[in-house]
Amino acid sequence: MSADNQFPQWEVFIQSKTGLPFKHVGNLHAADAELALQNARDLYTRRQEGTSIWVVPTDEIVASSPDDSESFFDPAEDKIYRAATFYNLPKEAKHI
């Protein structure tokens, strides 16, 4: 099957527990939103992976371009002070 006679592509996000962030788990092809949701349920939650599903049309996702990666991400390389590892934390503050 060539790409152009497939149903539209959808990205699937699963929330494993209420309150936790949705995680991208993969994608699928489906004719429309309802069937994408059903297919996502069948493909990605059959082993109790989740309690809630998002499906998003792949076309609707705005992604950064690999060509931009130097200007986007390299400038952070020498700014390790942004990782808050230089502060002395009080003993009482655990799990930070």
Partner: peptide, 11 residues
């Protein structure tokens, strides 16, 4: 008819 539906019917 296609992968996703194949799995749906098997489920």
């Amino acid at each position: 008819p296609y992968l996703e539906e194949d799995i749906a019917m098997t489920n």
